[in-house]
Computed example of a mutant assay.
Amino acid sequence: MKKIFITGIIVIAALAGIMYVLKKNKKENEAQTAVVAQKNAAVAVRIAEAGIKDVNTVYVTNGTFVPKQEVKLSSEVAGRVARVLVDEGDYVKVGQTLAIIVGDKQNVSVNNAQAVYDNAKNEVARFESAFATGGVTKQQLDQMKLQLENAKNNLRSSQITASDVNVKASFAGIVNKRSIEPGSYVSPGNEMFEIVNVSSLKLKVNVDEKNIGFVKLGQNIKVQSAVLANKTFQGKVTFIAPKADGSLNFPVELEISNNAANDLKAGMYGTAYFGDDQTAQALVVPRDAFVGSVSSNQVFVVKDGKAVLTKVTAGRVFGDQVEIISGIESGAQVITTGQINLLDGTAVEIIK
């Protein structure tokens, strides 16, 4: 009995010791967890300092060259192609005949109209003689003169239609495409030739809202093409869109005079350099500092260990740097990564 009592005391003491150790470990774990939770409450971010830097003031944008003049010539009459006088790649002048279509029906119409006109003219002469002697009335003479006028107009219309058998160039350029061969049958509206004029081209580019204010009509712009690395061309601003597109970019057109060898081709990519190749000092921050995009004009600034959402006014874009006109000062710590996890006032931990 005594042994049983002693054994019970030992078991109780052991259980009490175990309970004490467990309780002590729990307090230590809770303390460690609190420390970890406090650490995890701060969002890890990277920062950059806003600073005054020398930046290149040139704004660069790319576009595609298109011909200033381009036309697809179609047949205006039905018939068989008798002769094709030009090939693809040929240079043609204004009014040059490109192809001849057999116009037998048109020639027959001209002959018939000519006969009707000649007859009406003779009839008017006969009626005028008869009117002088009282053989016809003034009304009859006027009706005959009206018939002569109608016959004259019909003759002119037939002559115009007959002249359409000669397909001519409407402007000087190069035959880019020929869709007919001798013996082909064409109907009105069938495409026959594509003529392009590359002596002068247009470069269509987009300029963002931050830089459109520096672009003026008539402004001379340096233009280059990657495939013609050693050659520079001069472009002139001929159009500035009054309205931005969905991306807040403004379409701008430049007119460029090609060189004598017509090295620039329609469809090439071109680069336009707006502004002088000079440097200037500006307060800038990395593009990555902006919440969402540059157009949001919002950045997070670190103050007293917290992220403060700050409204700024963005200016020109210089590659991966953006000019700041107002909102922050030089030396401000702007957050460049981790913004997706931030709210205004969130505690942050700066990592390198």
Rank of each mutant, 00 (worst) to 15 (best):
R316P: 05
N112F: 12
R316A: 15
L254D: 00
V66L: 11
A42M: 01
K243T: 15
I4P: 04
V302K: 01
I9D: 09
A307Q: 01
S200A: 11
F250A: 05
I10W: 06
A289S: 09
Q321T: 09
M1T: 14
A16F: 13
V136S: 04
D263N: 04
Y117H: 10
S75N: 02
G89I: 09
S74F: 02
A314N: 01
T238C: 04
L141I: 09
K303T: 13
K53R: 10
V285K: 02
Y269T: 15
I335F: 05
F318A: 04
S170R: 11
A260Q: 10
Y59A: 05
K303H: 05
A172Q: 10
V252M: 05
V66A: 08
G213D: 01
N154E: 14
V165H: 13
E323K: 01
G315W: 03
Y185A: 11
Q96T: 07
V308N: 04
D304R: 03
N190P: 02
Q281C: 09
I12K: 04
I100Q: 12
Q281R: 09
E28V: 11
A115C: 05
I351K: 09
N107G: 09
M192P: 04
A13P: 04
A307M: 10
L98T: 06
F131V: 06
M144Q: 15
K24V: 15
D104P: 07
A99M: 06
T232N: 12
P182H: 02
A282F: 00
G189R: 00
G275H: 01
D118Y: 05
Q219M: 11
A347E: 13
Q224M: 14
S179W: 08
F214N: 14
V108S: 14
R178Q: 13
I195V: 08
I324F: 08
E349D: 14
M144F: 06
G135T: 00
